[in-house]
């Protein structure tokens, strides 16, 4: 199991939970599991998200491994100037 921390405004999709647990070995599995467990997150994930694993931010990198004790934070898709 990995614990995924969501950004605040997504709590409405998880019944108020900020930290949720899913079974996943990598980013792609984690995103799929999240969308399955919390269908309200599906459109958010499809719209594009970033994932921070142990402090490093990844964009759409499905095969990035996640260790059970990794810090996993779901973040919005970001764009710079």
């Amino acid at each position: 199991m990995v614990t995924v921390t969501l950004w605040g405004s997504l709590r409405s999709a998880t019944g108020g939970l900020k930290d949720v647990e899913v079974e996943a070995r990598n980013t792609g599995e984690m995103l799929k599991a999240l969308a399955k467990k919390y269908p309200a997150l599906e459109s958010v994930i499809e719209g594009g998200v970033s994932v921070a694993i142990d402090g490093l931010i990844y964009k759409e990198a499905w095969f990035t491994p996640i260790k059970p004790d990794s810090e996993v934070v779901l973040m919005p898709y970001m764009k710079g100037g």
């Binding site: 605040g8 405004s9 997504l10 709590r11 919005p76």
Partner: peptide, 19 residues
């Protein structure tokens, strides 16, 4: 627009919370 809490008018196109 997605994920807009109640009480906001139709011009609010995005809402986010962090912390």
């Amino acid at each position: 627009f997605r994920n807009i809490p109640e009480g906001n008018n139709a011009n609010v196109s995005g809402y986010w919370e962090f912390g």
